[in-house]
Each structure stands twice: as C-alpha cells, then as structure tokens.
Simulated scan of single mutants.
Amino acid sequence: MESKEIISITNKFLVEEFEAEPGLITPEANLKATLDLDSLDYIDMVVVIEDRFGFKVKPEDFQAIVTFQDFYDYVTTRVKQKELV
C-alpha cells in the first residue's frame, strides 16, 4: 500500500469518525488539538486503525505522535512492516 493511499484512507476515517473539518487536516497540524481528542477518542482511533489497516497498535506508540504527518508516518511504517511478514 502506498503512502498516498494510506493518507487518503486515514483522512477519510478522521473526517467520518471524528467529524473533523477536512481543511484543518494538514500534515503540520497538531493531531490532538485539531481533532479535540480525549483519552476515549484515542481508544476509538486505535480500534479504527487496527480494523482498517490490520495491525495492533501499542498505546506507547502514540506518545511520539504530535502532528498528522507523525500519524501518517506511523501508520505507513506499520503497514509496510506488516507487508514484509
């Protein structure tokens, strides 16, 4: 799966699941602030990621994610790791 496809899928579910304004989702924007996420929202996001991309998310992985680009990079890396197995 290519990075562009991952970003497209990710943005689509962020808009659908978290009612995010598409124009506010930019690579440099702060993920938590833009989506107004609380701890339950993170759990919802983990469930959606695992369902859509087929890999398990470790809670500690989210500590390093600040921007949407960080999020895209994380998902892309994990998808590529899964594809190698």
Results as ranks from 00 to 15, higher is better:
Phe62Val: 06
Val48Glu: 01
Arg52Ser: 14
Phe68Pro: 03
Tyr72Pro: 03
Asp38Cys: 07
Leu24Phe: 08
Pro22Arg: 10
Asp44Pro: 02
Glu83His: 06
Asp44Thr: 12
Ile65Thr: 12
Thr77Val: 06
Asp41Phe: 09
Ser8Glu: 09
Asp41Leu: 09
Val85Gln: 12
Leu35Asn: 04
Thr77Lys: 15
Phe13Lys: 10
Pro27Cys: 14
Lys58Thr: 09
Asp70Pro: 13
Met45Val: 11
Lys32Leu: 12
Glu21Pro: 00
Leu14Ile: 06
Gln63Glu: 07
Gly54Asp: 10
Asn11Val: 07
Val79Thr: 13
Val48Cys: 03
Lys32Asp: 12
Ala29Glu: 14
Thr26Ser: 08
Gln63Lys: 11
Val75Arg: 03
Tyr72Cys: 02
Asp38Trp: 04
Gln63Ile: 12
Pro27Trp: 10
Leu31Glu: 11
Thr26Phe: 06
Ala33Phe: 01
Glu17Cys: 06
Glu5Arg: 02
Glu5Phe: 05
Leu24Tyr: 10
Glu5His: 04
Asp70Ala: 10
Ser8Cys: 08
Asp38Arg: 07
Gln63Trp: 12
Asp73Glu: 13
Leu35Trp: 01
Thr76Cys: 01
Gln81Lys: 14
Ile6Leu: 01
Val79Trp: 09
Ser39Leu: 14
Phe71Ser: 00
Val46Cys: 12
Val48Met: 01
Val66Asp: 00
Pro27Tyr: 09
Val15Ala: 14
Val85Trp: 03
Lys4Ile: 12
Ser3His: 10
Tyr72Ser: 04
Lys80Arg: 13
Phe71Arg: 03
Thr26Glu: 13
Tyr72Asp: 02
Ser8Lys: 08
Pro22Lys: 00
Thr34Glu: 05
Ile6Pro: 08
Glu16Cys: 13
Lys58Met: 15
Asp38Tyr: 06
Gly54Ile: 15
Ile9Ala: 05
Leu24His: 01
Thr26Pro: 04
Leu37Gln: 01
Thr34Gln: 10
Glu17Val: 08
Asn30Tyr: 00
Asp70Gln: 06
Glu28Trp: 13
Glu5Pro: 01
Thr76Tyr: 05
Phe53Ala: 13
Lys58Asn: 12
Tyr72Glu: 14
Asp51Gln: 09
Asp51Val: 04
Thr34Phe: 03
Tyr42Val: 15
Lys82Ile: 07
Val85Tyr: 02
Ala33Ile: 08
Thr77Tyr: 07
Lys80Val: 05
Ser3Cys: 02
Ile49Trp: 03
Val85Asn: 15
Glu83Pro: 09
Ala20Val: 08
Asn11Leu: 01
